[in-house]
Write a protein that binds this DNA or RNA. Structure first.
Length: 317
DNA sequence: AACACCCCCAACCGCTGGTTG
DNA sequence: TCAACCAGCGGTTGGGGGTGT
């Protein structure tokens, strides 16, 4: 590494911080059309002033159609605890056993909830195997010794078996954790598999993002996507005055990298536009071509968790 | 009401390992 | 074989919201 590593992107020319809806839509639409063969080139091709890494993270952790959001079910938490005892901080590995959950999300849950819970139960997180003994049956703990050597699906089958032993009736096992669904999808969660009906939940694929609740959300009140259209005339005027965007260097549709959005594509895009308040009927956004202009700096973003905040171009970050 | 503190989590940073020429 | 490039991973950060005083 004598010369050192070239920075992944020019930080001076790259937008950072939270993503705004128009950036999300632009990224989603680009990936939907062209896939994500080259993350580094993607931002330029998609017309985003973002680092490729940032685009990748945003897609994987938030925008993927199959990402599941909301609180973790107890069974999911138990699975994380169990897998963490075996795999350690291999978040992506753990995520591969929890369809729809991202490594980042699992890492956050572990650091904010589960670690503390284990710590309070045992007084010492390092005694994780002892912790496992309290959480799980002895058969589970003993099975861990051979857990490491298993292939993911085999290991998960073991986990499921012990899980059933721990929680009694198999009916307590959530659908997303059923062994059948797992064994059909043991690839890393980063790999998009929207064509898989086991992952693709619902008539449209389940674009949960931050825009609406999923039916699997636990203990969360129903929330709405609340874009204050009236109060953000500047933003919507900006959208109205969009210049057609022509992606650079797009030769052909990449079948292998482009998620198969199938017949739901148009319906989904329509849904997205409506959710984002970009209804073409109102002179707003049309899915193709991508028309969203570049943002005017950090001040343009809005943070939207359950409820979208007012879009304030001049508000401070 | 105002302030301080805490918690959560989206996003960033830097490293690693795989691939390619 | 090796250097350069790239995607992916895991650790960390910091802003915003919630809660306590």
């Amino acid at each position: 590494m004598g010369k050192g590593r070239a920075p992944c992107c020019d930080k001076e020319k790259v937008k950072r911080g939270p993503w705004n809806p128009s950036e999300d839509l632009r990224l989603i639409t680009f990936i939907q059309k062209h896939g994500h063969q080259n993350w580094r080139a993607l931002p330029k091709q998609a017309g985003l002033l973002r680092c490729g890494k940032s685009c990748r993270l945003r897609w994987i952790n938030y925008l993927r159609p199959d990402v599941k959001r909301g609180n973790f079910a107890k069974d999911e938490e138990d699975t994380i605890i169990r897998l963490h005892a075996t795999l350690g901080n291999k978040w992506s590995k753990i995520a591969s056993y929890l369809p729809g959950r991202t490594d980042n999300e699992i890492k956050n849950v572990w650091n904010t909830h589960l670690k503390k819970r284990l710590s309070s139960m045992n007084g010492n997180v390092d005694q994780k195997y002892e912790s496992m003994a309290t959480l799980s049956s002895s058969s589970c703990v003993t099975s861990m010794s051979s857990f490491n050597d298993k292939k993911p699906n085999e290991a998960f089958e073991m986990a499921v078996v012990s899980d059933k032993a721990n929680h009694g009736s198999p009916s307590e096992e959530p659908e997303a954790l059923s062994s059948s669904s797992i064994s059909s999808n043991v690839s890393n969660s980063n790999q998009v598999n929207v064509s898989n009906p086991e992952i693709q939940q619902g008539p449209l694929f389940n674009f949960t993002g931050c825009y609406y609740n999923t039916s699997e959300e636990v203990n969360k009140p129903e929330t709405t996507f609340d874009i204050p259209l009236e109060s953000d005339l500047e933003f919507w005027n900006m959208l109205d005055s969009l210049v057609p965007f022509q992606p650079e260097g797009i030769q052909s549709h990449n079948e292998t990298q482009c998620p198969d959005f199938g017949e739901a594509e148009n319906e989904w895009l329509l849904y997205l536009e409506q959710e984002l308040g970009l209804d073409p009927k109102d002179g707003g956004f049309e899915a193709e071509p991508l028309l969203v202009p570049e943002m005017n700096g950090m001040g343009t973003m809005c943070h939207y968790h359950n409820t979208v905040q007012p879009y304030e171009p001049n508000s401070k970050q």
